[in-house]
Amino acid sequence: MLHGVNLTCVRGDRRLFKEVNFTLEAGGLMQVNGPNGSGKTSLLRILCGLTSPAFGKITWRGETVRALDGQYYRDLTYIGHLTGTKDDLTALENLRISSALSGVQVTEKQARDALAHMGLVGRELLPAKVLSQGQRRRVALARLLVCNTTLWILDEPLAALDVAAVKLIQDLLEQHLQEGGMVVMTTHQDIDIAAVSTVQLQLA
């Protein structure tokens, strides 16, 4: 469903990677590996259509991402390094507003349930600035519970999470993959996620 053909990324004068090819089918997991500065984040941003590759193209369900535009974004959830969590909003507001921005209206009940599932009971009404790094990331990842999208692109989703939360995310990803979803992710942690098919993409 998601194909990358001959992707090359140039940043300034430096070429980060060239001729990256991959295919991801329903239920597939792609782990992007590589040392710091090898272009993992750039690749994910290219997959989202935030950056255009120097060469190559990405297709989704047989059509190029450029042509699909809004249609593609209905199927996609991206959670980057920067999670888009606002300091001045409460956990609940953050979740509801960020979901609304990605086109999903979430009722207060749904949002509270999602936050509870992420282990944030009692923190729903605290402004994000008093939450810890890990808790903020949990708020951001709670979006995955309510988003209803097929393709998840996650940049270091496990950063700053404790063991319990890592387990939580692992279960969440496995369930998503079992239901025919797709995940593209980077991580520096050793984690074994069961999937119908797994692609390991190594960037130099």
Partner: peptide
């Protein structure tokens, strides 16, 4: 502010047209 905390990325990835946002 939206640029620094990543909200702007999310807006670019919204199915809604960016002009409207």
């Amino acid at each position: 502010n939206d640029y620094m905390d990543g909200t702007l990325e999310q807006m670019l990835l919204s199915p809604q047209s960016l002009s409207v946002l």
